[in-house]
Amino acid sequence: MTRFLLRRLAQSLVLLWLVSVIGFAVLHLAPGGPLAEFTLIPGMTTAQLKLIAHQMGLDRPLPVQYWEWFRRMLAGNWGRSYRDSQPVLYVIAAHLWPTLELMVSSTVIAILLGTWVGVLGAIRRYSVFDYLATVGAMIALSIPTFWFGLVVIYIFSVKLAWLPAGNLYTIGNGSFLDYAVHLISPSIVLALVTIAIWSRYLRASMLEVVNQDYIRTARAKGVPEQTILFRHTIRNALLPMITIAGLQLPTLLSGALVTETVFTWPGMGRLFLDSIGYRDYPVVMGILMFSAVLVLLGNLAADLLYAAADPRIRLD
């Protein structure tokens, strides 16, 4: 366990470093590079820009610049938004909660539904249900999230008027119910792709477990089929799904951005898009790095969780 942990930590650190290199490269790709925010200020002369560049250390060799930038990142100094001069991390933190809320609720929906579909598809392999689930999953993976969002709004908000078409809550109504109702549509929309992926992988995992010797042992013990399914098969089949869940994080974040746009959901994705609109590069870069680090930590967490859940990896 400790060795596994240390190895995963080391790998994550290497990845973190590479992620930062990519982030730095993207930053320097930006027109004007880190100077961009100053070039936009009216009346800036080339001489002034040069001075600023010197003061920011932009005339130094790239590795030195990278090191300075990386050090500041590690210290939590991610620059300031030039829309409102707030520290970037502060701005991100202010928008993080709605995104997490959306991701968590959609993941819960996706895992419940996806597990049901995947388990049923595996135990009724090649049944009509299984076909529909297989084809349905492939189609679900082909539907643009924003389009599905528009369809959900059209049906449930425009036609049926059951659910709000967007926003976190109704202004002037802070009740829990109001929050919950606003969460339904975007969560379902964001869940679609995850349901498809989760059900496919779980089905494959179930089919592998079903053929294991220990399932035969359980049967030879006289354990009822129902118990074999829940206590032996599903439990083992869910184990590798922890890793799969971790790997879905980037997809989930991308989906969240699109969903937030359609449902005017004031989360990190929305903030990212708005910041691009305002050419607020510090925030754009910040969110880009932040999301990659989030993914990295998510994968690490999934691995640790897997290690905790699988007794074969545990070490006493």
């Binding site: 992620v19 990212f272 993914v295």
Partner: peptide, 22 residues
Amino acid sequence: MRFVDAVLCFPSIFLLLALAAF
């Protein structure tokens, strides 16, 4: 391959938008 892993850490839409914006 670690570089590939690192690029995959960036959610594709985020990376895509950041690049497209430039």
